[in-house]
Design a protein around this nucleic acid. Structure first.
Lengths: 122, 122
DNA sequence: CTCATATATATCGCTTGAAGATATATAAAT
DNA sequence: ATTTATATATCTTCAAGCGATATATATGAG
């Protein structure tokens, strides 16, 4: 019944995290917690806080996002937005991400047809 | 110029390894070294021997593959083939793998369109 | 009014595991 | 004869994810 094991699922997710976070920021400012929620809703996987904030700090250090403390309600939040470099990176990274998947898919899909058409006798 | 960073690429690959190895075995017996080559050719990524053999042993321990020592040429090789359980696993794991990607893609693609249509001014 | 839960950000350190290094051995090529 | 490719396997180091933890405000229930 179990399909993909948890470890594989997490690795797959982890390898897509940068791209997904950049993608979430593509339509405007977001703060950490909201990014976490949006990624969880979209992917079904949770970025743990212990991974999210270091990741965000890394993107900031790399100049891909810019952060500012602001409060829209009474509450202070750290808002992140894409820099021009971040937008460029999103384009190239997303394209690479797609391409990497496409190559692997070209290996997996025919094999899947194979076992589907020739089921095990026992 | 750099798209997806190496770490993400490796994580992505690692999370797809089980599925790819099962996929390679879908059209018949293969031995470790040939599996390694086929995955490399298909994906452009190399499974290191230090990862491949432990992985193969794990699949064997899980009853997904069956291994036998045989020599077709003068040389002894350990041949792996899918068990019925392995074929079933390939089906569910490949489906899950696909689905996981589709979900993430649904987040990434619209964002990509977003930045492509509204390029940075600077 | 209090307690639990959700929101919100951040860091530290344990544990896990990928893969580099290494070992061993045969076939092929130069 | 020496190097390179083939072939399998293990050990151990090193990095890093994320569980645990800390801190603080907002909200909803009882």
């Amino acid at each position: 019944m179990s399909g993909l094991d948890d470890k594989s699922r997490r690795d797959l997710f982890r390898g897509s995290l940068d791209v997904m976070v950049l993608a979430v920021l593509a339509d405007g400012k977001q703060y950490g917690y909201s990014i976490q929620k949006r990624v969880r809703e979209a992917s079904g996987q949770t970025i743990k806080a212990g991974s999210l904030y270091p990741l965000l700090h890394r993107l900031e250090a790399d100049g891909l996002v810019k952060a500012t403390w602001e409060s829209d309600t009474g509450r202070d939040r750290k808002w992140y937005e894409l820099t021009a470099a971040g937008q460029r990176r999103l384009k190239t990274a997303a394209a690479d991400w797609q391409a990497a998947f496409a190559r692997m898919q070209a290996l997996v899909l025919p094999a899947l047809r194979q076992v589907t058409n020739h089921p095990a006798t026992s």
